[in-house]
């Protein structure tokens, strides 16, 4: 039995986690503030998608992006524009979100990902700022006044109904999040994941062993922008109104912080970091007043004292426990 658990290990954790997320709302709704908790979980899921994509790019392939808010925004505005400006079905919004991110990431990847280190950081940051200006100025995005987003119907079912909105979105968000987590976990434990880690570790050696570096970089960049875009689309329908301020440098930095705190080179770390930093601040009053200060401090302290993130600390503990429990069986 113990052996079977260890062998099936990773898959089993994921399954357990899915079950947990499935029943969690039932527990949360017992509370008076159930809907409030559910809405926090929705944001946790949305941020998780962005951070997991970012972790594939930064933690695995080692390519920094300080402009992911742009791709999150592209997804959100796709949904907003398609439903409000053109009155089309929200599903077209999701489709446009994927296509737009794919195209833009594809066009940008080649020239941008040739840059390394600080240069890449600055180029992605600059791109993020350019998109921010566009969100702020283009008439189609509603400029600084923002744009409202149409209701989301799935097979005729209104997701935004008054009493069930939070629970509806909880399940929608977490089905997406779990699916994207599953894909990401599979990718990192595969030929592709190894190639990405090889690029991160030693580009020259990776190249010499046959890895087409620019192709892998391009693909992982596109994938991470699609993750961000899908998150953006869900965010748009859930929040029903879009303001450019949600898609600026601050959000780019926030998702990087989440990745760093949870552990950039771990998919679970991304989930954990995003969830902790989406939920915890809401329960700490001190955060409301000094949020920037605390964010900065958390970022500095975690890179200095916990460069691999919380997830690594936890997995180290877990390995110890496993050894203790199962080796004695």
């Amino acid at each position: 039995m113990a052996k079977w658990i260890v062998e099936k290990g990773k898959g089993l954790y994921f399954l357990l986690f899915c079950v947990l997320m499935l029943v969690l709302p039932l527990i949360l709704r017992m509370s008076e503030a159930g809907d409030y908790y559910l809405s926090l979980m929705v944001f946790a899921g949305i941020n998780s998608m962005v951070v997991i994509g970012l972790n594939l790019l930064m933690g695995y392939a080692g390519q920094i992006s300080l402009g992911h808010a742009a791709f999150f925004g592209l997804g959100a505005y796709s949904s907003g524009i398609v439903t409000t400006r053109f009155g089309l079905s929200p599903l077209w919004g999701f489709t446009l979100s994927i296509i737009l991110n794919f195209l833009i990431a594809y066009l940008l990847a080649k020239p941008i990902l040739k840059l390394k280190g600080h240069y890449l950081a600055m180029a992605t940051l600059g791109l993020g700022m350019i998109f921010f200006v566009l969100f702020n100025e283009l008439p189609i995005t509603g400029a600084s006044e923002g744009i409202s987003v149409g209701k989301l119907y799935i097979f005729g079912y209104n997701m935004n109904s008054r009493y069930l909105k939070d629970i509806n979105y909880y399940y929608l968000t977490w089905i997406f999040t779990l699916l994207l987590t599953y894909f990401a976990l599979n990718i990192v434990n595969s030929r592709v994941g190894r190639a990405l880690r090889a690029i991160h570790s030693k580009e020259l050696a990776a190249h010499s062993i046959g890895v087409d570096i620019s192709r892998f970089k391009t693909k992982v960049f596109i994938l991470s922008t699609i993750y961000a875009g899908l998150a953006g689309s869900i965010f748009a329908h859930y929040s029903t109104f879009l303001c450019p301020v949600d898609f600026g440098l601050n959000y780019s930095i926030r998702v990087v912080t989440m990745g760093v705190v949870g552990g950039m080179s771990s998919i679970w770390g991304g989930l954990l970091g995003a969830s902790v930093l989406s939920i915890l601040p809401q329960f700490l009053d001190i955060f409301a007043e000094y949020d920037i200060l605390i964010y900065g401090l958390v970022l500095i302290l975690s890179v200095i004292f916990m460069p691999e993130g919380i997830s690594q600390k936890i997995s180290l503990c877990w390995e110890k426990c496993q050894k203790k429990w199962f080796h004695e069986v």
């Binding site: 990718i187 595969s190 030929r191 592709v192 190894r194 190639a195 090889a198 990776a206 062993i209 046959g210 890895v211 693909k219 992982v220 994938l223």
Partner: peptide
């Protein structure tokens, strides 16, 4: 990693 060129699975 050395098997990279002898295998094909993509994203």
């Amino acid at each position: 990693m050395g098997r990279h060129v002898r295998s094909k699975s993509g994203f």
